[in-house]
Computed example of a mutant assay.
Amino acid sequence: MADELDPIDTKILTLLSRDARMSNAAIASTVGIAASTAHTRIKSLFDRGLITGYHAALNQAKLGRGLQAIIGVSLRPGARQESIQAFTEEIRRLPEVIQLFFVGGGDDFLVHIAVENSSKVRLFVVDHLSARHSVASTNTSMIFEYHRNAVATDFA
């Protein structure tokens, strides 16, 4: 799919990934095309599945969840498929969870959470992760600063 992108489509995607609320007129002006052409190209990018939606960025601190952490989770061997599916379905529904990644490497999952304070991180790990029979170990890293270049979409 990437080879089907011309320079104008690439510029449009870059602009929208930086500011999804950018107006069609502003996109057209920045890229150097007519507004109607920009509209047609953006619709085509949607139709081709290159744009999958627009997302609101929430200020977790103002929501009372100013501490974020990434928790690496390793599952116990045995019945892995059932453990992976159950873990995914249950953990992703928890309100503290911002993102859940199923990964290869030392961990099976990376769980990105936002909570009020370090006591809530501990409570999350103890109550929702370590208490699960399928979880062998966890490794918590606090997030001090975060920079986002793009919003990832679900893998197909």
Rank of each mutant, 00 (worst) to 15 (best):
H112L: 14
H39R: 11
T14G: 07
M1D: 11
V125P: 00
P95H: 07
A56Y: 09
G66W: 05
I98M: 11
A38V: 03
F46M: 10
A69Y: 05
F155H: 09
A25V: 14
G104E: 09
F109K: 02
V73Q: 01
M1W: 08
R148D: 04
Q85N: 14
H112Q: 11
L63M: 15
A150F: 08
V97D: 05
N59D: 15
L67C: 04
D108F: 02
G106V: 10
G32W: 14
D47H: 06
S141G: 10
E82I: 12
L63G: 04
L5S: 06
K62F: 12
R132D: 04
N24V: 10
T37W: 05
L45V: 05
L5M: 11
R41Y: 06
E89V: 10
L45G: 03
L67K: 09
V73N: 02
N59S: 15
I70M: 13
R65G: 02
Q99V: 06
L58R: 11
K62R: 13
K11Y: 00
Q60R: 14
A25L: 12
V73T: 04
N59P: 01
D47P: 00
F46Y: 15
V111E: 01
F124D: 01
S134R: 06
G72C: 03
L15E: 00
R41L: 08
I98Q: 13
D154E: 15
R122Y: 07
S141I: 06
F124I: 06
R148I: 06
V97L: 07
Y146D: 09
I33P: 01
S29N: 12
L5I: 08
L50F: 12
S137Y: 03
V121W: 01
D154P: 07
R148Q: 12
R122T: 13
A38C: 07
N139A: 14
K43L: 15
V125E: 04
L63Q: 14
V73Y: 03
Q81R: 13
L16R: 01
A136L: 14
F144E: 12
S74T: 15
E82R: 15
L110D: 04
S141M: 13
G49A: 08
T30V: 04
L45T: 04
K11F: 01
I98T: 11
I84V: 15
V135M: 05
L67H: 05
A28Y: 04
A38L: 03
I42P: 02
A152Y: 11
I71W: 00
E4Y: 10
G64S: 07
L129P: 02
L123G: 00
V126K: 11
A35Q: 15
A156Y: 08
K120G: 02
D154W: 10
L75A: 05
A136N: 08
A57N: 03
E90N: 12
D107H: 07
L94F: 03
H133P: 03
A20W: 01
E145C: 03
